[in-house]
C-alpha cells in the first residue's frame, strides 16, 4: 500500500505542477484542469485502443492538453474575460469533447490493453515487485519533470513568466507580449495536466469522462500542503515541494479511504475532506501571518 500512495502521489504530482504553474507562477487561476486531465486520459486510452504505440499516445495527450490551455488563454486574452471564466468555459466544452474522444462513451477500459504500466510490469516481473517497478518509473518521471521545469524557469523566457505573475506592467515595459506569454504558460501547464491524466488512465486501467471532477481543487490542496512542508523561495524547492505535497495529499486520502469508516467516512466524502484541507491550510496561513504581525507590533 505504501508504494501505492507514492505512485499515485507521483502521478498526480505532474498535474499539481501544472496547477502550481498557473496558480502560483502566472497568477492565472485556471480551471481548465478539470477538463484537460480527463482529456489526457481519453486521448491516451483512445490512442492505445486504436493500436498506436504508447509514446504516441503520451505525446498526443500532452498536445491535446496544450491546445486546451491555449484555448483558455486566447479566450482570456482576446475576449478580455477573467481567467476563471475562460477556464470554466473551456472545461465545460471539454466535457463534451472528452466523450467524443472516448468514442461517444463515458469511459474506455484499458484492462485488456497493453500500455505503459502493463509493459513495465511485464518487463520487470522476473526480478522486481510490480509496485516497486512503478515506483521507480514514476519517481524517474517526476524527477525529470522537476529538472526540466527548473531549467525552464531559469531561462530568460521562464524568468519572464515568473515576472508576469508578479507584475504584468513590468513585463510589457520589457517588450514582451503578455498574451503570448500567457498562452505559453497556460499551454505548458495543461499539457502537464493532460500528461498526468494519461498516466492516471493507465494506472487505473480506464479512462472516464468524469475523471476530472474536483481536480483543480485537489491540485491546489497538493500545492498548499507542499507549501507547509518546505519554506523557500527558490524555484527548485517550489517545484520539489509540489511533489512532496502531492504524496502527502494522497496519503491523507488513502487514510480517509482505508480508516475513514471508523468515523463513518465513505469514499464519497473525500471531496469534502479535500475542500476542508484547503480551508484549513488557508486558516493556518492567515493565523500565521496574524501571529507574525502581532510579534512585530509587540517589538515596536
Amino acid at each position: 500500500m505504501i508504494e501505492g500512495i507514492f505512485v499515485e502521489g507521483l502521478i498526480y504530482s505532474i498535474m499539481a505542477l501544472g496547477v502550481f504553474m498557473t496558480f502560483r507562477i502566472l497568477d492565472f487561476p485556471d480551471l481548465t484542469v478539470d477538463g484537460s486531465f480527463p482529456l489526457g486520459a481519453a486521448v491516451m486510452a483512445t490512442s492505445l485502443v486504436g493500436g498506436f504505440p504508447i509514446w504516441t499516445g503520451i505525446l498526443l495527450a500532452m498536445l491535446a492538453g496544450a491546445v486546451a490551455g491555449t484555448i483558455t488563454a486566447v479566450i482570456h486574452n482576446e475576449l478580455k474575460v477573467p481567467s476563471l471564466l475562460a477556464g470554466i468555459l473551456t472545461m465545460t466544452m471539454l466535457y463534451s469533447i472528452n466523450i467524443r474522444v472516448l468514442g461517444n462513451k463515458a469511459n474506455i477500459s484499458l484492462l485488456k490493453q497493453s500500455h505503459m504500466i502493463s509493459a513495465l510490469v511485464d518487463a520487470t516481473e522476473s526480478f522486481m515487485n510490480a509496485g516497486i517497478a512503478q515506483l521507480f518509473l514514476f519517481t524517474l518521471i517526476a524527477a525529470l519533470a522537476v529538472i526540466l521545469l527548473n531549467a525552464f524557469f531559469h531561462t530568460d523566457l521562464g524568468l519572464t513568466l515568473g515576472a508576469l505573475g508578479g507584475n504584468e506592467r513590468m513585463v510589457v515595459a520589457q517588450g514582451s507580449n503578455p498574451k503570448i506569454l500567457k498562452i505559453i504558460g497556460v499551454g505548458v501547464s495543461n499539457s502537464l495536466v493532460a500528461l498526468s491524466g494519461a498516466f492516471a488512465a493507465q494506472y487505473q486501467g480506464f479512462a472516464d469522462a468524469s475523471l476530472g471532477v474536483g481536480m483543480v481543487v485537489s491540485g491546489l490542496a497538493m500545492v498548499m500542503i507542499g507549501e507547509f512542508l518546505i519554506r523557500s523561495s527558490k524555484i527548485h524547492w517550489l517545484l520539489i515541494r509540489v511533489i512532496a505535497g502531492a504524496i502527502v495529499y494522497k496519503a491523507i486520502m488513502f487514510g480517509g479511504r482505508y480508516y475513514g469508516y471508523r468515523i463513518h467516512l465513505t469514499p464519497n466524502d473525500l471531496k469534502l475532506v479535500t475542500g476542508l484541507l484547503i480551508i484549513l491550510s488557508l486558516i493556518i496561513t492567515k493565523t500565521d501571518l496574524l501571529s507574525r504581525w502581532k510579534k512585530r507590533h509587540q517589538n515596536d
Binding site: T155, D156, T160, A163, G175, S176, I180
Partner: peptide, 12 residues
C-alpha cells in the same frame, strides 16, 4: 529580463 527587449529566448 531587462537585458534585451522583445520576446525572451529559451536559453539560460
Amino acid at each position: 529580463i531587462a537585458s534585451y527587449k522583445g520576446m525572451k529566448k529559451l536559453k539560460i
